[in-house]
Simulated scan of single mutants.
Amino acid sequence: MRHEHLQPGALIAVSIVAGTVGWNGYVLLLPVAFAFPVLWALARTRRTAAIISAGYFLAASRALPQGVATFYSSDLWPGLFLWLCASVGFVIVHAVLWTRKTGARPCRYLLAAVLMAMPPFGITGWAHPITAAGVLFPGWEWWGLAAATAGLMGLVTRMWPAVALVLAGFWIWSAATWEEPRLPESWQGGDLELGASLGRDVSFERHRDLIVTVKDRVVGGARTIVLPESSLGFWTLTVERFWVQALRGTDVTVIAGAAVIDAGGYDNVLVAISGDGGRTLYRERMPVPGSMWQPWRALLSQSGGARAHFFENPVVTAAGRRIAPLICYEQLIVWPVLHAMLEDPDLIVAVGNGWWTKGTSIVAIQRASAQAWARLFAKPIVFSFNT
């Protein structure tokens, strides 16, 4: 009786540790998240399974309240509210699909994993254990995804100790031979430290400073420079002409974040600029829910908010390469990258504007997640973040 009384508390405590350690920004620790399905399967009641799910998810996303408070210049309460709301989908899916029947658990967990990877639940599908596939099976591509999925299913069976041992062997081998994703030739990401002013300071002085930053990297041999999300502020004809004139006579291409506004709202985009002209390259498929993507506005006949282009433009072409862009939030969830990998791009471009995450591990987690996917599919990756 004493053992049965202590077991739920121990499982919940370990789930919190798994969420905290697995999602701390170190890519080689991502496989710790594979502890979650084991703990979910060991739960003896649906209530315990729900609390285990909540403990894991809330621990993995623990930086959200502080980040939201910084973004809105408020106290922690709005962030705490959003933090709890975001966990609802994850908890409901895993609680509803939990079962005492051991034979049904692999299929039930597979269904939960798929639901949390795809919209609508996948819209807040952070901390998905499948992200660790790139650490366990680097370079295996779709076979690695299948192997990791099979491993997750095996971890909810009675054979989980043997499955865990096999996965641990792959993890140790991967850690011993780990290589960082390579940078494509002549491409370079430009990290900035401009804080909250990036995208808000739209003066020509700021644009001149960014052009100087680009030209400094060209001196180093780069010919395609990537700048962070929101770097250019609003994308207008005036801004386009300014940049095109600055790049005229060079063979440099700049890929940078911006916003395209109209009467109905705005698109969070990447634009490509060279001496020959500029164009909108990519429209974000999944803006941050709540702060950017606000679908309820349409129901209230209100305009504003960022549009979500869920299954559009997964791969775009710039500087002679087919690229899979991932803007900020898209690096934390599963379906945008898998959607892009279906079209076999040449490289991944991951950008973000993380000034509001200062003092948290959010940007590090974004980088680790994108890096893991790049290693799984053996793709070069270019990072560009503002902090």
Rank of each mutant, 00 (worst) to 15 (best):
V239R: 04
W40K: 10
S61K: 07
Q331D: 00
G220C: 14
G304N: 08
T387F: 12
T70G: 09
E240M: 11
W373A: 01
P65G: 04
E312M: 12
V239T: 10
E205C: 13
I362F: 10
A18F: 05
L332Q: 04
Q7R: 15
S61Q: 10
A33P: 02
G25D: 01
A259P: 01
H94Y: 09
R285C: 05
V212P: 02
A41V: 07
G195T: 02
W160M: 07
L58S: 01
A86N: 12
G154A: 10
L247T: 06
V218M: 12
P119N: 03
G139K: 05
L42T: 07
D251E: 09
W171K: 10
V239F: 10
Q331Y: 12
R283V: 07
H128D: 03
A33G: 13
G320F: 06
G139C: 02
D262M: 09
F385R: 05
H309M: 05
G305P: 00
I16V: 14
R279Y: 15
W335G: 01
I273L: 13
S186M: 13
E284R: 13
A272Q: 02
G55N: 01
R62K: 13
S291W: 12
I327D: 00
S361N: 11
I261G: 05
A222E: 03
A298C: 06
A168T: 14
A256D: 00
E179K: 15
W126F: 15
E205I: 14
S301V: 11
W77D: 08
R108A: 15
R44C: 09
P129D: 02
S274E: 00
G89Q: 10
P161C: 12
N313D: 05
S203V: 13
P336S: 03
G154Q: 03
G354R: 08
